[in-house]
Design a protein around this nucleic acid. Structure first.
Lengths: 126, 126
DNA sequence: TTGATATTCAACCATACGGTTAAATATGAT
DNA sequence: ATCATATTTAACCGTATGGTTGAATATCAA
């Protein structure tokens, strides 16, 4: 299917979509960890853990510093901030009860005009 | 591999990991949309769009109201809030320059004792 | 009833994902 | 040199993902 371009958010959210990787990030929040330390809590092979860590790295969520034969990983907060910011856009929907307000308006509309006669998006965009 | 249990965050982040679905959510931020309205901006079949919408639904990110032959979709902010909250845990890493502070502390430690002689996680977790 | 519209379902396809095991690589210790 | 430790690579496997097309379903309009 030939990927044309992948947004950073694709990679970030994909990386976050796995519980193992999320727990690894959580561990990293406690400070630097080596590959084996990151892998230890999980009942998977080191090779599998290595792949997870690569996924986190690819998303920029962690950085690796090779120190001798061990690889030190540390959290890289930037991409997490991006994801947080992206979600922040929708914050208004769950704060200030704006959603409840809109729900009320919708219900009123549904009663005022017959549900199907009104154009579905009645100019509330752009 | 037999999934034993899937955390809501798995499904939510997975749903957010696709650009088409993210754009659909964005459209939904402008108000209710039908399936075909959501599908319209994309060069994919309606069947494909239907699958994307199901993924969003499965993650609880949208709700569907069948109204006659059209399906009205609306944003469901709860799961977005969960994801936002999850990321919020890491906020301290990109605000208040706390990460920089920790970096400095790490560097000091690395100089005080030889990097490998110290146990890598020296009680700074839990 | 007939036909158009809105959406899903089923079957299929190529690629990605998450896991495995076994071998390779690189460093550290003796 | 030898051996152990830390990690990656390669080959493989089953399932999931994202797309397709074509047929099915359901509703609205004539």
């Amino acid at each position: 299917m030939v990927e044309y371009q992948t947004s950073p958010l694709d990679t970030i959210f994909h990386a976050l979509g796995d519980p193992t990787r999320r727990r690894m990030l959580h561990a990293l929040a406690g400070g630097e960890r080596t590959i084996s330390q990151l892998a230890e809590p999980f009942a998977i092979s080191l090779a599998a853990a290595s792949k997870h860590i690569k996924a986190l790295e690819k998303a920029g969520l962690i950085r690796r510093e090779v120190r001798g034969r061990t690889h030190l990983c540390r959290l890289e907060p930037g991409p997490l901030a991006s994801a947080h910011e992206w979600l922040g856009f929708y914050q208004r929907f769950w704060t200030d009860r704006l959603d409840v307000l809109e729900q009320l308006l919708r219900d009123e509309d549904a009663q005022a005009v017959t549900p199907d006669s009104a154009t579905p998006d009645k100019g509330d965009e752009k």
